[in-house]
Design a protein around this nucleic acid. Sequence first.
RNA 1: GUGAGAGUAGCUCAGUUGGCAGAGCACCGGAUUGUGGUUCCGGUGGUCGCGGGUUCGACCCCCGUCUUUCACCCCA
Length: 437
Amino acid sequence: MSYIKPKLLKGFRDLLPEEAIIQKEFFKVISEVFESFGFSPIDTPALEYYDILTGKGGGENEKLMYRFNDNGGRDVGMRYDLTVPLARFIGLNQNELNFPFRRYHIAPVWRAENTQKGRYREFYQCDCDIVGSDSYLADSEILMLMDSVLNRMDIKDYEIRINDRNILEDLFKLLEIKEDKIISFATLMDKKDKMSESVFKEKSLEFLKDNEKHKQFLDFLSCDSLDSLDEFFKDTKVYENTSIYIRRLKDTFSICKENGKGNNISYCPFIIRGLDYYTGIVFETVLKDSLSYGAVFSGGRYDKLAGMFSKNADYSCVGASIGISRLISALKERGFFEKDKVCVADILIMNMDKRYHGKYINIANVLRDNCLKVEVYLNDDKLKKQFKFASKNGYSFSIIAGEDELANDIVKVKSLKAFEENEMKIDDLVGFFKNTL
RNA sequence: GUGAGAGUAGCUCAGUUGGCAGAGCACCGGAUUGUGGUUCCGGUGGUCGCGGGUUCGACCCCCGUCUUUCACCCCA
């Protein structure tokens, strides 16, 4: 055979068991919480027609998408998020669905952007969305779900920051920012956390030019609660409209609070999110000790997107997405995962002699039938080597059954963590491991 | 897409002015043929990312390229 040098594409990676085990554990927790809120799983293809994926107005996004012609000459792209495919899914399957529809989707997405810390070209997203409800209760459910997921992951130092697009639009009106300047102004606001206060003030003044407007803007940014926000808008010309959305946020927030889920949720005036499709509440989650990783769990309300794929219906949607690859990177850097498990099995049966191979498999299968994770050592190696293998893989126990033991229908069970060894009847193994592991 | 740093054994990295390719860990074997966290002894392992150039001679200097890290742009 000729040698082929193994290599990976930029931004793509292998997951070794150690990391894949962690990821799978996260997926399990996430889907359990999603399902506890009544979200059902769906799946959609990795490839879609290119014009479907860009339907909401390409721009920058087009550069970030993997795009090619398939063997039939079709213009296709790999999905770069799970939200646009959801909108397409809704349009295509609306007759089969019962609205309001709650779905979740855990799957990889692809973005041809340059790599960076915790950012890859292929990564997993875990999305949950409610389609077909414009109620503030749907917003609350999503926020409470986010809080539950983070709690279940045992993450303590997170902050869910919320804002509302409508309020921002009123702010822009108030500051008399012209339509064509809104994007660059919003981008500046979005980056507030990345620069020093004085630089930010300088840049925003440069933008607004007018000292009075600038002061007003800074007043807005100092709103750290919905009450102060209300106070800020109270005597302005846009208040009639803004107050509706402040009221809505208050209602949304108090549902969370009344149910003990509001402690890590706060109003944040400079949360913007991407400009493409959000129409109402927006939110981001940051880890206070890992701010450089950016938002790890975010989303918002988008009431127009799904309607693009439907002739005669509009679907109000609200949802959130966890960037699980980035979250794991951040947690890993912080030593969140104490002992790295490199193998899922808990028990290794030592291979003492070919004569007993059948017996080993038999013992293993009985344990396996009881949902225990068991391996039999396959090669006829020295015991020393088998133990070395065992401690490297991190099993909790090994079972030694040689001539002496099997003659008496017993085995030795050795705790690999405690360096202790006990004799035990074969029939007692299931009970012992069920109690111990 | 832009800018800067890095790429030498499986891993982490040394490598003098441009003059024979190194260490630790890991791996394999032995001390120890039924017992893994320690010890001791021995051994395997490199096209110095790849391609070109300069030079008597290149891991070292130059150009290109790929990968990677960090930052920018962007982040649905």
